[in-house]
Amino acid sequence: MTHLPSFRHWARRVAAVLGVLVAWQVAAQLADGRARAVPPPTAILQTLAANWDLFVGDLQYTLLEAAAGFLIAVVIAVGLALVFIRSRPAELGLYNIAVAMHSIPFIAIVPILVIWLGNGYSPKIAVAVLASFFPILVNTTRGLRAVDEQTTHLLRVLDASWWQVLTKVRWPTALPYLLTAFKVGAPSAVLGATIGEWIGSQTGLGYRILSAMFNFDPDLLWATMVVSALAALAGFLLFDLLERLTVGRWVAEAR
């Protein structure tokens, strides 16, 4: 995982994506307008270019909400994970609540959040938090617990304090788990923010999706989907890169 993929590896990936796009293009042209819901890639690209300013505005809005939601989720999840490893009863009580919250369909909670928090940024940020915090919580808790038995014994013999164990051993042990969680959580936050914009918004990618749908503009809908997907992917790649640059090196070598 730490080794840079070879050129052949990349060539294959690019070829696979291009193959799908070409097949799609051909199929859409053969259908010749009868399947207007699935425009050819070139049409999507044209729409993207034509509405570039619109998308940049939407992106700014959505990414801001996603980033804010993600940060809040990280703070809550990591804080809660620390409480969990400190206190078993707290974990038993709070974990079920976390699972329940994670199981609520976001789409159902958006109207409630809008009623609560109004039309501004807050409800969108709240959905982004809900969408991303659970994987971070689960992974961080696991990571903080991943210290092996003999290391624990060593630290006990050294009479290390809880804080020392946390900072010198548990936290570094948890870091790879944390970065994995971020790779899952960041795209989820983008998705959450998008869904949060479905109600009570005048801008943002989620709003753009809805308005394209109601105006029956499949080209715009597809173009927005592409932008959303790229935004989510960017979140993933950011933490993937961070992982390679930091923990990737010694994690791969250690086992």
Partner: peptide, 29 residues
């Protein structure tokens, strides 16, 4: 802290250098 222990596994912290691992007990005290 009268004890020094060695287990079957060396249990070195993989992100620390040899020197960092050996001096861990001193950090703790």
């Amino acid at each position: 802290r009268l004890f020094g222990v060695v287990f079957q596994d060396p249990v070195l912290l993989p992100w620390r250098t040899l020197e960092g691992n050996v001096s861990l007990p001193l950090e703790i005290v």
